[in-house]
């Protein structure tokens, strides 16, 4: 479903040094697969995710999603992005819109759904993430965990084929991480294709089909959660796991 081939991406720092974020990065993600990406900060995990819906431009290589090269100049990237939901570390809810409006807006202006249908879909999703009673509240009145669940509902409202989570629980108070992870887990069990950047090893162990460990813009090691946590091969992986577990 997603085919990433030899992607290179470097950033320029303010002092004009080049920092390599992705180095000849290649991987495939299949339909229905839940891939968890872990690694130290600055290893290129988030950059990889942001390349998958072209929030970043790449220097070389290609990313094919459902047979379409998303870095092709001819394609309309907005059509691609409709199919890829993204959940951010800092939620990025629209603060001037109510919870319900946050979820319905893109359905109106992107999917052209009528108001009644959009509201119906939104209510269903808000119910699913357990926050329907707050539909007329503004995001600033919600806790972090509640905001993130709304953000998940907002992404799901587009009926995406792929969901991406960019450290979705990293900015949350510890007692709110669970409620967001629960939503993500139920999504995984429903067969959603998911690419998840996270530091939650419990989540990786429980629901992932594959764990990818990245460092310095490359895949160091990948495999099933069981392989990964019980018998890692690479020294770098062992070192990382010993530090976080």
């Amino acid at each position: 479903m997603i085919d990433v081939r030899n992607v290179c991406k470097a950033f320029s720092t303010p002092d004009r040094k080049k920092v390599k974020a992705l180095v000849n990065f290649s991987t495939q993600i299949n339909k229905g697969e839940v891939v968890v990406i872990i690694g130290p900060s600055g290893s290129g995990k988030s950059t990889f995710l942001r390349c998958l819906n072209r929030l970043e431009e790449i220097d070389s290589g290609e990313i094919i999603i459902d047979g379409i090269n998303i870095y092709d100049k001819e394609i309309n990237i907005n059509r691609i992005r409709e199919e890829i939901g993204m959940v951010f570390q800092l939620f990025n809810l629209f603060p001037h819109k109510t919870v319900l409006e946050n979820v319905t807006l893109a359905q109106h202006v992107v999917r052209n759904r009528n108001k009644k249908e959009a509201v119906e879909i939104s209510r269903g999703l808000l119910h699913k993430v357990g926050i329907l009673e707050k539909e007329n509240v503004y995001p600033s009145q919600l806790s972090g965990g509640q905001q993130q669940r709304v953000a998940i509902a907002r992404a799901l409202a587009m009926h995406p084929k792929i969901m991406m989570f960019d450290e979705a629980t990293s900015a949350l108070d510890p007692e709110m991480i669970g409620e967001v992870l629960d939503v993500m887990k139920s999504l995984a069990r429903e067969g959603m294709t998911m690419v998840v950047v996270t530091h939650e090893m419990g989540f990786a162990r429980e629901v992932s089909d594959r764990v990818v460990f990245m460092d310095e813009g490359q895949i160091v090691e990948e495999g099933t959660a069981e392989h990964f946590f019980t018998s890692p091969v690479q020294e770098r992986t062992k070192l990382f796991l010993s530090q976080i577990l």
Binding site: L55, N92, F94, A106
Partner: peptide, 23 residues
């Protein structure tokens, strides 16, 4: 306006113009 607002709008498939106008 935090750049995450534009990114969230664009990641939902909104064009630059729609993101500007609505968000």
């Amino acid at each position: 306006i935090h750049k995450g607002q534009m990114e969230a709008a664009r990641s939902l498939g909104m064009s630059y113009a729609k993101a500007m106008r609505h968000i």
